[in-house]
Design a protein around this nucleic acid. Structure first.
Lengths: 257, 257
DNA sequence: TGGATCGTTTGATAAATGTCAAGCAATGAG
DNA sequence: CTCATTGCTTGACATTTATCAAACGATCCA
């Protein structure tokens, strides 16, 4: 790993509070790799040998069944992924592919499992990370089962707004077809959902979306802290993991799914 | 806790390989409590002070939004639940209510967090449990987003068959309205889904369901090991957590959701 | 510049799912 | 036993979502 990247990796939740010694032991054999866009990093069912840490670019996690395909999460830097499979030394339940040129740090799964068993501080950090990921998925399921397509989109936009703090205009961080898969609908329906939201002050212009009547939009969307995780919490040490981890193995702009 | 229950609790995945000393330290202040049917143990948003261990009965985990409600999992003994919230000392993202008379062991969250930080063996066990829960949810989301209602039901029935090993007849372990919520549909649609499956040899008689043409049913359902977790794995020590944990925080008969 | 590809949008139509209302069967209480 | 309650089923209908087809615009490459 380049000396340049060390602070960013060090800042990952899985290394919170760990000693320099443990950090070195885990990342000592890690190596940085560059991937072009649209590269499959991992296929469903593959044995997982590494923990992946996305340092630059975007990665999509997807699941398939019977020639159907859905997006489970879109990751942005700095995020780790497939930690659960690494901890259990199990096969991957989802595929991972780059949707941009990516820089990824690959950390030995063996090193992680071994070090967990030796340093309880690291073990706790891993458990906290996994807990955050778990809670992210709970939110995702509630979002999926309890809300309709238009409501999911509305909440996605509001979450995006809350996270980027850019006034009334947000920029969609992915292609619309990718966004559609993330929100659990077809591209056609996403397009129609945007049309529906015109009645709530939403104006779309390519990737730029203006939220003209946030109040109206909120009345439709009814964002809920137990689903959407809007507010990036104050960085007090206890709430930190839950807030941070949300962006790991999930996505920074990710209330939508 | 009654001496009677100790072996069953001790056998939980979160205590796999831990020393007697650690086990006593964690469970020393735990106490057993009995609840009648239809009792709310925990509401969404509540602060979580205990890890719950279901020793007898059935518990439903549910999420709500805007006067809608869905079932995320149904637990059967012996399972622990809301571990992720305990690890992060966070509020619950789902409610828990008994759907039968229940016996539940309540373990201090503080004791768990404290012991994790001291005994790496316990920390690893917790991390493995969380990983299993996480993977259960990934399966659940794939099931929900990739399959239609009839397909979910078909796979639920096949999973039930695989787990109970009772020939061609399975017994539904819950009321149909509960099953419907678990599968993400209305009771009316569950009823119609059963009708549709008549064409695949499925005969319903109250809670008893005969799967007359398993081959046909499988061709429709296309069970997938990356979603359904049919086979309870052989008890080799590495795969154990993934298989066991599936039944914790999930349900033994739970491929369906 | 021309042509091809790709992402997006729109319309028409079909399939899936939810909603409302009524009826039926099983259960339990008086 | 009779009645009321509850869970389940069925039918008619509304809504949502998916599918297929076509058209448009932008981008890339020859």
């Amino acid at each position: 790993m380049r000396a340049n990247d060390i602070p960013r990796v060090r800042a990952l939740p899985i290394f919170a509070n760990v000693s320099d010694d443990t950090f070195k032991r885990v990342t000592g054999t890690a190596y940085l790799q560059r991937f072009p866009s649209n590269t499959t990093l991992l296929m469903e069912g593959d044995v997982v040998d590494f923990l992946y840490v996305l340092l630059d670019g975007q990665v999509e996690l997807q699941g398939t069944w019977k020639d159907k395909e859905t997006t489970l999460a879109i990751l942005r830097p700095v995020s780790s992924f497939i930690l659960a499979a690494v901890v259990l030394d199990a096969d991957a339940l989802m595929s991972a592919r780059t949707i941009e040129r990516c820089e990824i740090l690959m950390i030995s799964g063996d090193a992680i499992r071994k070090t967990m068993a030796e340093d309880p501080v690291f073990g706790v950090a891993i458990a906290r990370e996994l807990s955050g990921c778990y809670r992210g998925l709970v939110r995702s399921i509630k979002n999926q089962k309890l809300r309709g397509g238009v409501e999911r989109l509305a909440n996605y936009l509001l979450t995006l707004r809350a996270k980027t703090e850019g006034g009334d205009t947000v920029r969609l961080p992915h292609e619309k077809r990718v966004l559609a898969a993330l929100l659990g609908m077809t591209p056609e329906n996403l397009s129609r959902a945007f049309s529906t939201l015109q009645g709530y002050g939403v104006e779309v212009n390519g990737a730029d979306v203006r939220l003209g009547k946030v109040r109206d939009l909120e009345r439709l969307a009814r964002p809920d802290p137990l689903i959407d995780n809007h507010a990036p919490r104050a960085p007090d040490i206890l709430a930190e993991a839950d807030a941070e981890l949300w962006s790991t193995e999930r996505q920074r702009s990710g209330g939508g799914n």
